[in-house]
C-alpha cells in the first residue's frame, strides 16, 4: 500500500496513526537497523532484541519527528542510543566474564579469524566503538556524511575524520591479512 512512499511521508502517516505506514516503515528500516546492530558485535538474538527495543522507543517518541526533516538520521539517532544503553547494561553484567576473556586473550577477533567472505563483525572488530558505528552507518546502511553527522550529533568534518581513521586501520588490518593468506598459500604449495 505504501511501497513507493518515501520515509518522511511514511513517518508523517505513522504520526497520524496509520498502521499500514508503520508496518511499511518497519519492513523498510527494520532490516537496515538489524544490520547496523549486527555490524557492532551483536549476535542475531541481541540484534533482534535491540530492534524490538528500538521500535518501542521510536513508537514512544514518534512525536519528536518533525515533518520535513530527514527521517533516516532520526531513526539512527534513536537506534544508537538504544544500543549504547544495551551495551552499558551488558557491560555491567558481563564485566567479570570479559575480564577473564581479556586475560586469556580471546576477547577480540583477530585478522587471522576472518572467514573467506569476511564476516562483518570480525572485519570491524579492530575499530573503536565510534569508528565502527560510523563505518556501519556509512557503508552498511549507506547513509550520507550529513545524515551520519545528524544521527551522531556531530559535524560532517568529525565524521569524515573518524571514517578516515577507520579506513586507515582497516587498510592495515586487511593488508596484514592478505599477506598472511598469501604466505599461508605459498607455504602449502
Amino acid at each position: 500500500m505504501h511501497a513507493d512512499s518515501d520515509l518522511e511521508t511514511l513517518m508523517a502517516l505513522y504520526q497520524q496513526g496509520d498502521f499500514a505506514a508503520a508496518a511499511a516503515l518497519i519492513d523498510r528500516i527494520g532490516p537496515q537497523l538489524h544490520r547496523f546492530f549486527s555490524a557492532q558485535s551483536a549476535s542475531r538474538a541481541d540484534a533482534d532484541d535491540l530492534l524490538q527495543d528500538t521500535w518501542l522507543r521510536i513508537h514512544r517518541v514518534r512525536h519528536t519527528y518533525r515533518p520535513g526533516e530527514p527521517a533516516l538520521p532520526w531513526f539512527y539517532a534513536i537506534a544508537r542510543h538504544v544500543r549504547v544503553d544495551h551495551y552499558r547494561k551488558s557491560m555491567r553484567t558481563l564485566a567479570g566474564e570479559r575480564e577473564l576473556e581479556a586475560m586469556s586473550g580471546t576477547a577480540a577477533a583477530t585478522p587471522a579469524e576472518f572467514g573467506p567472505a569476511h564476516d562483518l563483525d570480525a572485519l570491524l572488530a579492530p575499530l573503536s566503538e565510534s569508528q565502527r558505528e560510523i563505518v556501519a552507518m556509512l557503508k552498511v546502511s549507506g547513509m550520507s556524511l550529513e545524515e551520519v553527522a545528524r544521527a551522531t550529533s556531530s559535524t560532517v568534518g568529525a565524521v569524515k575524520q573518524k571514517a578516515h581513521r577507520a579506513y586507515e586501520k582497516l587498510r592495515k588490518t586487511l593488508t596484514v591479512h592478505a599477506i598472511g593468506s598469501r604466505g599461508g598459500r605459498s607455504g602449502l604449495s
Binding site: A23, G30, S38, A39, D48, H118, L170
Partner: peptide
C-alpha cells in the same frame, strides 16, 4: 570488502518484523 560483508550480514526474520509491528 565492506559491501560484500554487509550483503552477507543476516537480515531479521519476517516473523521478527511482524512481531515488532504487532507490538505497537
Amino acid at each position: 570488502v565492506l559491501n560484500r560483508a554487509a550483503r552477507a550480514a543476516h537480515d531479521p526474520q519476517p516473523e521478527t518484523l511482524r512481531r515488532v509491528a504487532e507490538s505497537i
